[in-house]
């Protein structure tokens, strides 16, 4: 059984690893060059953060693994990212809605973790929170523009909200792993963040003239390594270069 902190580092690291992968898929495909730059920036932030978290995990695990071994050497059932991070990019609206909804959550989580009793984790969170505030802002601006833009953009961004919404509940799930860490002052208590997150998201969405979807079926399972079909495709692609260099 993995220690709670190691499991936690995997969870946080995989969130960034998989979201960074999705963002990097936009490379050369953005609606304008300025947005190619922004998407690459956000991808770099998340992949960089994944690298720091998995380096820490590797040193903590002390099994002789490198961060790359951890990032690219696992199978589908041993990735622990939130499902929202693996949802396919879809159109620009889906990408920006996911980015906004996740980043609004991530900012709050990282603010809490910035004062974690685990110094390494606190340091990573302090750097990350600055990045994620920018991500949240950038994506929120797009939600507004798409909501206030044309009929087509309004239709697409509203549809994107419905695509992403069923993946929001899982963000606030906590199990014994996380409860142990909260007691030790290391982990982040997600329950207290939920209301703040909901208020932020509701405001941005209603300012853009859009409607918040109703809560329906909610996907969950990422924290236990039970994913959507999308993850297997990500890792078979993502792990290819690493495997090549082993052969």
């Amino acid at each position: 059984m993995e220690s709670p902190l190691l499991q936690y580092l995997f969870r946080l690291g995989d969130d960034s690893l998989i979201l960074g992968h999705r963002l990097s898929e936009w490379c050369s495909r953005a609606p304008m060059l300025e947005e190619d730059l922004a998407l690459a920036n956000m991808a770099l932030d998340h992949i960089g953060r994944a690298k720091m978290l998995l380096e820490y995990a590797a040193s903590f695990e002390a099994m002789g693994h490198s961060a790359d071994d951890l990032a690219f050497g696992r199978d589908e059932r041993h990735y622990y990212n939130l499902l929202i991070t693996e949802v396919p990019n879809g159109d620009f609206a889906v990408t920006m809605v996911r980015m906004f909804i996740f980043s609004a959550f991530d900012v709050l989580r990282l603010e809490e973790l910035s004062t974690s009793h685990d110094e390494m984790l606190a340091g990573i969170a302090q750097k990350g929170v600055k990045e994620s505030r920018y991500h949240r802002r950038h994506a929120a601006d797009w939600i507004w523009r798409l909501g206030k833009g044309t009929d087509e953009s309004r239709r697409r961004v509203q549809r994107a909200l419905h695509t992403i919404w069923p993946f929001t509940d899982e963000m606030f799930d906590m199990d014994d792993t996380e409860r142990v860490l909260i007691e030790e002052g290391i982990g982040c208590d997600l329950h207290t963040l939920r209301e703040i997150w909901k208020k932020d998201v509701s405001e941005v969405i209603s300012n853009a003239g859009l409607t918040l979807p109703e809560d329906g079926y909610m996907h969950r399972g990422g924290r236990n390594g039970v994913h959507t079909e999308a993850l297997g495709h990500i890792i078979s692609e993502m792990n290819y270069g690493y495997e090549l260099m082993l052969s």
Binding site: S24, C27, L33, A40, L44, I47, E237, Y240, Y242
Partner: peptide, 24 residues
């Protein structure tokens, strides 16, 4: 960009993506 998602390490991926971002 054809190789960003398949880069051989986290470091190589970051460097390649930063390079492509520069070109942009």
């Amino acid at each position: 960009g054809n190789w960003v998602t398949r880069a051989s390490s986290l470091r190589a991926k970051l460097i390649l993506l930063a390079k492509i971002q520069d070109e942009c």
